[in-house]
Amino acid sequence: MGNALTFQDTKENPYLLGIRGTSSFSELNRRYNDGDYMAQNYFKVPSELSSKDLFLIAALLVLIVLIVFPTLISSRTEIKLISIVDQIESLLQNLSKDIRINNINSIRDYLIEFPDIIDIIPKAINSAKKYFPNAQIVLDLYIDPEIDDKYPIIYVRAKDYDNKFMELLDKARKDFMEDLINKRGWILLTTDFGKPDE
């Protein structure tokens, strides 16, 4: 067994948990910090363990794998986000934390085709959030059924649509419309007068 972590299940030791080069977790931690995770001994965990103990051990193992694994993969100084695909992924991941995204795969495809609006989308969403802080923001891809046209569309869904709603929507649009000049891609901020999701 050549890896840093091993797991064995035998009759004698039902929970023989092997971490090479360690005799305790603190030892493991010390050795890990010293860059040594390839030694050859096993660390035994008592066989009478409660489910809580097992859960804690499992959680610790996951943590160790997360820490150790990147070092087993070769180390290098790498600069992230030089790929357009990665930039799109990063954007969608960040957006999905606080807005709803429908048809995410189609939006991803659109942005690969029109990468010049990648950084306008967060700007438009921020603008929508600025004018409608309590509304739900939904990003979707609009596909025109009659002509061959599609573009990302941002819907503002408010609890109440009062008289000032459209006026504020116009103001929000103005914040980013100039950025769309000379772009091949397009984006629209509007509303479908829907209610926010619960």
Binding site: G35, T71, S75, R76, E78, K80, Q87, I118, N182
Partner: peptide, 20 residues
């Protein structure tokens, strides 16, 4: 012909003395 400016957050990962 098309030029634009973007602000990018770069994550640089280095291994230094065994630590990432």
């Amino acid at each position: 012909p098309r030029k634009e400016q973007r602000i990018i957050q770069e994550l640089e990962i280095k291994q230094e003395q065994g630590n990432i």
